[in-house]
Amino acid sequence: MTEMTGGCMCGAKRFTVDLPEGNNAYLCHCRMCQQASGNVSLAMVGVDQAAVRWDGEPDWYRSSPIAERPFCATCGTSLGFRFLEGSDKMDLTVAAFDDPSGFVPKSHFGAESMHRAWLNTEGLPEQRTDEYAALQERWAKVGGAPAS
């Protein structure tokens, strides 16, 4: 087991989770996840509900008659998904982890809604935030720095 932490952008909703080795990370392309995240897919990792400890109970949105999604009502961060009954599992959003770099997707779900043009972006032009002058100037005006 590996203990990992994460939470929302504003820090009001935090979690700690014990993850087994070889975690179950995947990309969900279903329309509900697309709408909940405002994106073409949502990177998720399956966990045992009992392994998740919340520091700042998340807000919950009942996204359908069978499921609900934890989120932060203050900053809007999507934190996951779980069925209302009949499962001891849930999913947490990969990007909500403090260090998501170790997750590698193992599968796709909701393939009927997949936007394949967004799957392989290899070879597209890349730009680093620290090399984008207009962004750096805006941060300098407010005496801050972008999140890394």
Rank of each mutant, 00 (worst) to 15 (best):
Q49R: 15
A111S: 07
V47Q: 11
S78W: 01
F71Y: 13
Y26G: 14
N120S: 08
S63C: 08
E68N: 12
V52E: 12
V52K: 14
G80D: 09
F103R: 09
T121S: 05
Q35W: 01
Q34A: 03
R82W: 02
A67W: 02
V94H: 06
V47D: 11
A95H: 06
D88I: 00
E57M: 11
D98R: 01
F97A: 08
H115K: 15
L92G: 08
D55K: 14
S113N: 12
D55P: 02
A95G: 15
S87T: 13
E68S: 11
A96H: 01
A117N: 12
K89D: 12
V104G: 08
G38F: 06
V52P: 12
E122M: 02
C28Q: 07
L27M: 14
R128W: 01
S101V: 03
F81K: 04
E68L: 09
P100T: 03
V47H: 11
E68I: 00
D88P: 03
S78G: 12
V94S: 04
S87A: 12
M32R: 10
G80T: 10
P70I: 09
C28G: 07
A25K: 12
G38P: 04
R53Q: 14
D48M: 10
E112V: 12
P70A: 08
M44L: 15
W54A: 10
E126K: 14
S63R: 05
R62L: 04
R69V: 02
R128I: 00
G86W: 03
F109H: 09
G123V: 01
Y26W: 02
V47R: 11
M90D: 10
M44P: 00
L27F: 14
S87Y: 06
G76Q: 07
L42A: 10
P58H: 04
T121M: 14
S37K: 06
D48C: 00
S78N: 13
A36S: 15
W118K: 13
P65L: 05
F109I: 07
R116I: 10
D88M: 03
R62N: 07
G56H: 11
P125A: 01
P125N: 11
A51I: 01
Y61Q: 03
V47K: 09
G123H: 05
D98G: 13
L79V: 01
T74F: 06
A51D: 13
N39G: 15
N39S: 15
A73E: 09
A67M: 03
W60P: 01
G86L: 01
S107F: 11
F103D: 08
T74E: 15
L119G: 02
A73I: 00
M44E: 14
H108A: 04
C30M: 07
W118A: 15
V52Q: 13
K106Q: 13
S37C: 05
L79E: 07
H108C: 02
A117D: 14
F97P: 04
W60G: 04
T77Q: 13
P100A: 09
F81D: 04
A111L: 08
F97L: 05
C28E: 10
V45S: 07
C30H: 11
D48A: 15
L119W: 06
F83N: 06
S113H: 12
P70R: 09
A95V: 05
G38V: 04
D91K: 01
